[in-house]
Design a protein around this nucleic acid. Sequence first.
DNA 1: TTGTGAATGTAAGCATCGATTACACGGATT
DNA 2: AATCCGTGTAATCGATGCTTACATTCACAA
Lengths: 232, 232
Amino acid sequence: MRPSAKPPSTKAAAKPRRRASAAPAPRPYHHGDLRRVLIDAALQLVGEGGPDAVSVREAARRAGVSPGAPFRHFPNRAALMNAVAEEAQRRFRAEIEAVLAEAPTSDPLARFRCLGLAYLRWAMKNPTHFEIISSRRFFDHDMTAGVSQDNAELIDLTGRTLAEAFAQGQLRSSDLKQVQIAGRALVYGFARMNIDGHFPRWGVADAEIERTAEGILDLLIEGIAKVPGKSP
Amino acid sequence: MRPSAKPPSTKAAAKPRRRASAAPAPRPYHHGDLRRVLIDAALQLVGEGGPDAVSVREAARRAGVSPGAPFRHFPNRAALMNAVAEEAQRRFRAEIEAVLAEAPTSDPLARFRCLGLAYLRWAMKNPTHFEIISSRRFFDHDMTAGVSQDNAELIDLTGRTLAEAFAQGQLRSSDLKQVQIAGRALVYGFARMNIDGHFPRWGVADAEIERTAEGILDLLIEGIAKVPGKSP
DNA sequence: TTGTGAATGTAAGCATCGATTACACGGATT
DNA sequence: AATCCGTGTAATCGATGCTTACATTCACAA
């Protein structure tokens, strides 16, 4: 199939000193941890130009490696994206849980609010990374157990928090699943409006976004909270 | 620059009857309305495989035209996508307004609900087309006045509806902009959750989606509506 | 009617990308 | 020390967006 066969190795001679003098180490033949470096490069690309800006070749270029090398570590581009999504999801979850750890334990509804706020803030600060973990377009959920699991546990966490709030009589509605989905739709929608560039069309300046985020979250909380002086 | 010059036309001879017999008209040199046909082909591609499935060449292929032809009508792929988005947005707006035309005129809050429902239903029925008009990824807002304008007018329409509801004392909050953004975030979020394949992870089956959509919309309405027996 | 220019199609080609294949290197194991 | 296999390279393929040179035909004016 391949027409031209290559002459058998002039490489050893062509390659200069091997980690000898103080020169910036001309990279040994084997990279060390290319997989990790590729994921980092891809993460960086996502941060720079969004998920579409990730190309296997560019990641390879940044890793200082040939265009075919990445395919030793990832069967295809999607697999690389999966790894990137996994990393992003890990960071996302870590932040959410860190924030929640500092929330008041005695007021579940306030904790629920904290969850929403942490979600929104992370999405605002890391729009491109948020995008990658949100849209299945960029990776294969079935192929990426890590993302799905992290996600499921976050869903569980909010579900439990909501259940506690209900148990303490803080909610008007008893259809917790509905409430939870509404809450998720609200914060996810807001985050995506930001990512998708809707806010300029809504006359919301960048500086106002975080305040607006908090505002709509409070609107939700008020909407689902039981009015103190009123029994169902 | 170009090495090989072509012999000067054997085409006229090679081309068979020209719209003569009853044969299916071997397409004249000029297509007729290639621009329109390309948009339709692209719309179809969007419907089949989402926005990413659209390629200029495939659209050309389906139009039965050479790969370079589309560039006579669209300076680049983005411009084609813009046209597609414009068409989709037109249809979207038409449906919304048609639904609203049948809504009760005396109850603004009910009209607001109708708007939300129409939005959700269209998004559920045309997920890929909805995606294309939602995410600026696929087209350039500045380049596509039509989409932005249609969108702005829909935003205006909901804004006015909400203002009427407030004027009739149907709302708890007086911060209408906040309410409107919350409402939009909710329906947009729900629509995107559907597009982005979140619902399987939430245990929401396809058959339940529409009902759930209605449920969260009602939750919102209840949340923003003034409780009858309670004055602020 | 005829001639000419603009509009619009074709053919060929470039660069880039994802992906594959044959081969080269070199660390780890024996 | 010999060898095996994980990992990198080089070359190549097919598809895509886009450009350029050329071909064809329509519309309009003389």
